[in-house]
Amino acid sequence: MIRNGVAIDDEFAEAFGMKATRVIITAHNPTWARHAAEAATGFATSVIACGCEAGIERELPPAETPDGRPGIAILLFAMSGKELAKQLERRIGQCVLTSPTSAAYAGIREGEPVALGKNLRFFGDGFQASKLIEGRRYWRIPVMDGEFVIEETTGVVGGVGGGNFLVLAATQPDALAACEAAITAMRRIPNVIMPFPGGVVRSGSKVGSRYKALIASTNDAFCPTIRGITNTALGPEVGSVMEIVIDGLTPEDISAAMRAGIDAVVGLGSARGIHRITAGNYGGKLGKYHFRLREIMA
């Protein structure tokens, strides 16, 4: 399949079932909501070493937040509900509770309830108070700038992690420009996050390593600087490869995000140095979900 001079490989992205939740962070203004959200979703690029994958889903206008203030919706994904609960408590406790004027609310009502403020309330040292409003319990924790309001629980649902596609371009600036265009388009899609810095990852990995201590190592088949000494997947025209990884609440959300991102890349076309789009997988035996590029772009 060739679109605008860009070859789309007959490949598929292999993704896994995860546990997911959404938290709505509000603050006095969008700047402070973003500060809290960025901190809470920091160091959350990959479950391999971060415990969870997290990112900003979108900015919320006051009319869409529970307390009528500017807000940010963040999504968090982990390999188990238990790990997700642990990460949630740490991240909200260290990054949102601490952020001036902030408040945190459940962004998903369905699914298994998991503690949001249920344990963090003890920071109040006995001065915390709760309010049950329309069937939902909120905790009011006195803090130095006033009061931190946090909902008791948020819902955990099944999610999908590891949707991806790779952009193969002539040069590093070409690959970066294409990925930036893709991320801009993908951020308009609800229910997904691209957890890597700026949404883009340049160090795609393969399973295993020649070093026993490592479970993953550089994806040498896509590294242009060693193509002469490895079993390369790159043609001579490719000088740089970047990947976009997507976590979403449903497979359909990931498909929609991949389509939007690939469309944006293809829109730049071969004239802007984009040669190929492919996807990362492990042979199809590890992940429950397969996203075939050509089916998505059909």
């Binding site: 529970p66 307390d67 203030r69 309010k131 409003i133 909120y138 009011r140 006033g146 009061e147 309001v149």
Partner: peptide, 13 residues
């Protein structure tokens, strides 16, 4: 005198 954030939620309810 305090700004009471929980009143926002009550007012909406």
């Amino acid at each position: 005198v305090q700004v009471v954030p929980i009143l926002r939620l009550l007012a909406r309810a």
